[in-house]
């Protein structure tokens, strides 16, 4: 290790002590000539009025895209999207909706991460850098949405674009491998192709995007809006 590398390593360690600050700095520094854009904020609208009870098309597409396969243990199997059934106790109205990483602006998982592995890209996508994740699972405790999974066992047959392995935490990454190349997340694509049209993905900062247009029209809410996390995933009809 030469002196320059030492300085860098020292800098990273120091910066890690102030979580919020460090991550933004790193993302901006690394982005010179990059494809992430700080003017963009990726987001999603879930129109729960269009989610049929029992439909798992988005979950299935997600599992296939990322090569997630369960071991029949619901408690510990990795899942990026969960379908949650709700019933209003007073009125009896039921709804069914997918819940995944909400890509919060002030993400609790990022705040608590001791290594800086949990971070928010400058375009709003919250990720785990599995190369620096030590598997402590603080982020899983901090997340109000139960969005993250821990890998307990050795895995085989991972898909090339989603490396996954024992001892690290993972969650929905808004399919960055697709989005960075101009695509949409696999769940959104599946929902659209099955003609449900319950999921809309896009740039929340672009007033002309389909997402912004719908967010402007429809009344939407954030799950646990009381926490003021400014989530990137918004719900209609919950």
């Amino acid at each position: 290790m030469n002196r320059r590398k030492m300085l860098k390593a020292g800098g990273a360690a120091f910066l890690a002590l102030a979580p919020g600050v460090r991550l933004v700095d790193l993302a901006v520094a690394a982005s010179k000539g990059g494809s992430t854009d700080h003017l963009v904020r990726w987001g999603m609208l879930v129109d729960a009025t269009k989610c049929a009870r029992g439909c798992t098309d988005c979950v299935d597409a997600c599992n296939q895209e990322h090569g997630l396969y369960g071991k029949g243990r619901a408690e510990t199997d990795a899942q990026y999207i969960r379908v949650v059934d709700l019933q209003d106790k007073a009125t009896g109205k039921t709804s069914s909706l997918p819940v995944m990483c909400q890509h919060c602006e002030t993400a609790p998982c990022v705040d608590v991460c001791p290594t800086g592995a949990s971070f928010r890209r400058q375009d709003g996508v919250v990720l785990v850098d599995k190369h620096t994740c030590i598997g402590c699972r603080y982020c899983m405790l901090a997340c109000p949405y139960k969005a993250r999974s821990f890998i307990h066992e050795n895995l085989t047959d991972q898909v090339p674009h989603t490396p996954r392995g024992k001892g690290t935490v993972e969650s929905c990454n808004f399919c960055t491998h697709r989005v960075d190349r101009g695509g949409t997340p696999a769940c959104v694509e599946a929902c659209e192709s099955k003609d449900h049209r319950a999921l809309v993905f896009g740039d929340m900062n672009d007033p002309d995007s389909e997402l912004s247009r719908q967010l402007k029209e429809k009344s939407t809410t954030q799950i646990r809006s009381d926490l003021n996390l400014n989530t990137g995933v918004r719900y209609h009809g919950v």
Binding site: D157, Q158, P160
Partner: peptide
Amino acid sequence: MDCFECHAATPGNAVASTQ
């Protein structure tokens, strides 16, 4: 090297095309 504990060690993958 632990890279291939997570990373696929082949360019294509069987799992992606099944299910």
